[in-house]
Simulated assay, not measured.
Amino acid sequence: MSPTARRSAPAKSRSVIPQVSWRAPQPAPVVLVSGPEEVCAERATAGIRDYLKAEDPSLEVTDVRADDYAAGTLLAVTSPSLFAEPRLVRVGGVERCSDVFLNEAVAYLSQPQEGATVILRHTGASVRGKKLLDAIRAGEGGGVEIACPAIKRDSDRYDFAAGEFSTARKRIAPTALRALVSAFSDDLTELAAACQQLVADVPGDVDDRIVERYYGGRVETSAFTVADLAIAGRYGDALIALRHALASGADPVPLVAAVALKLRTMARVAGSRESSSAAAARLGMKDWQVDRARRDLVGWSGPTLARAIQATARADAEVKGASRDPVFALERMITVIATRAPFAA
């Protein structure tokens, strides 16, 4: 890591205050919402507001910018009014805070105002405000921390979406969840909105047909949808999905990568007779990934899986320049995987 990168990444101090999930936020005199994932941070902030509003509808809500701060504002908006209504103060931009705000916020921790909840939003984009964060994490002000780390990996997005349905006490089929996550793999905000729409609109369980009806245009172009259909042996459907994906502008390289990822996972799990949790711990995977790979392996043998991996490796080289016809390379790969037989030219 370069010196510049080290300076821009905030060093997180050891925290002695309660760590609260953004899915179940709890109010406290001071709430530190840390980390770059805005979707989770917004949920946490909204959850605290709703909690306090349910306790007392007269809640006063004030927004303050730490990077455009007027001296005395924090004390003014947290001080009780004539009727002593509860106060919620949402402070944004703490990672860019002014010196005036930093000094007043640190001083506030020594004597938080009764009936006031102060939410401090720090994205972690800089070390600015570290003195304040260290004080909060050391227990000054009676605070809690809600961490909102970045959600970038496919497994993290899958867990995020699964949590959306679990929190709403609604069941979704694993294949439907995978299709939904794949359809919105490039935008967590859109994925969250899609999950909430299905939660609100669908009275019962969510299955593949429902996801396809709502988001079929996006799901059809997903690389993982192509991979799932081919591995399931649905040859015709896999070719149709592949052509839809290519027609919508999908790049052949990620398409092959999605197939390769699933086949590698299947190969790692193949032959394991231990429990899902034990296999996941040994392989550095999630339990659901092991369960999904085992379902995918139904109907496969060692020779057919090896043949599919070889066909995928060949296609990977061809779509990266070893062939003049990447589309043909993709179709041949799908044929070998879906039919589980050698390709007949």
Results as ranks from 00 to 15, higher is better:
I334R: 05
V61C: 11
S323M: 01
S58Y: 14
R90Q: 15
R128L: 10
A194R: 01
S155Y: 04
G217K: 02
T312V: 04
G93T: 00
H122G: 12
A147H: 06
R169E: 15
G142Y: 06
A227S: 15
E114D: 13
R234A: 14
A257D: 15
L305R: 06
A173T: 04
L88H: 10
A138N: 09
L242A: 05
T221I: 06
A280P: 12
D207K: 09
S222D: 11
A28Y: 14
A162T: 13
V206P: 08
A70K: 07
A11P: 04
V256D: 15
V118K: 08
A105P: 08
G139D: 09
W288K: 04
R157V: 06
L32Y: 12
F165Q: 03
G284H: 02
A46V: 00
P57E: 07
V269N: 08
A24T: 07
A230L: 05
T335W: 11
P174G: 02
S34D: 09
I119T: 01
T312P: 15
D237N: 15
E212F: 03
C40L: 05
L239A: 09
T78S: 10
R268V: 02
R178E: 12
S185A: 14
L330D: 13
L255W: 13
C40Q: 09
A245K: 01
E145H: 05
A11M: 03
K53P: 00
Y158I: 04
K262D: 07
P254T: 10
R324S: 14
T265M: 14
P112S: 01
E145D: 11
A176G: 15
V39L: 00
E220T: 03
L255Y: 13
L180K: 00
V89F: 08
S15F: 01
A168P: 04
A105C: 12
A105G: 11
S277E: 04
P86H: 11
L330I: 01
D228M: 10
V16C: 09
I17M: 01
Y69D: 06
T167V: 15
L188S: 11
A173F: 13
P29S: 07
S79V: 00
P342R: 11
E55I: 05
V211E: 04
E274D: 09
A9C: 03
G233P: 08
L102V: 06
L239P: 07
L102T: 12
T78H: 07
A150H: 09
L263P: 05
G217I: 00
